[in-house]
């Protein structure tokens, strides 16, 4: 498991009070983890803080699953 995935999972579990077993790469924040649109705004802010990056709103709109977040963050960290 990548380091980014681990850190993303930890944030998601903390913020959504989610069952760790359900927080897989495929898990959708809204459909699988009971998040609403405001929860996602908060999650994105937490990712920004954790990885010291900026995630513009139009990119954030496409982050729907744990895996989406990991690949977006991976891309940002490499660029």
């Amino acid at each position: 498991m990548s380091e980014v995935l681990e850190r993303v999972r930890k944030i998601v579990i903390d913020h959504l009070d989610a069952d760790p077993d359900k927080v897989t790469e495929k898990a959708s924040f809204i459909d699988d983890l009971e998040a609403d649109s405001l929860d996602i705004v908060e999650l994105v802010m937490a990712f920004e803080e954790e990885f010291d990056i900026e995630i513009p709103d139009d990119s954030a709109e496409h982050i729907l699953t744990v895996g989406d977040a990991v690949s977006y963050i991976d891309g940002k960290l490499k660029s």
Partner: peptide, 10 residues
Amino acid sequence: PKRISPFFIP
């Protein structure tokens, strides 16, 4: 301003 929680108002 970017660090304000979306839950602050509600």
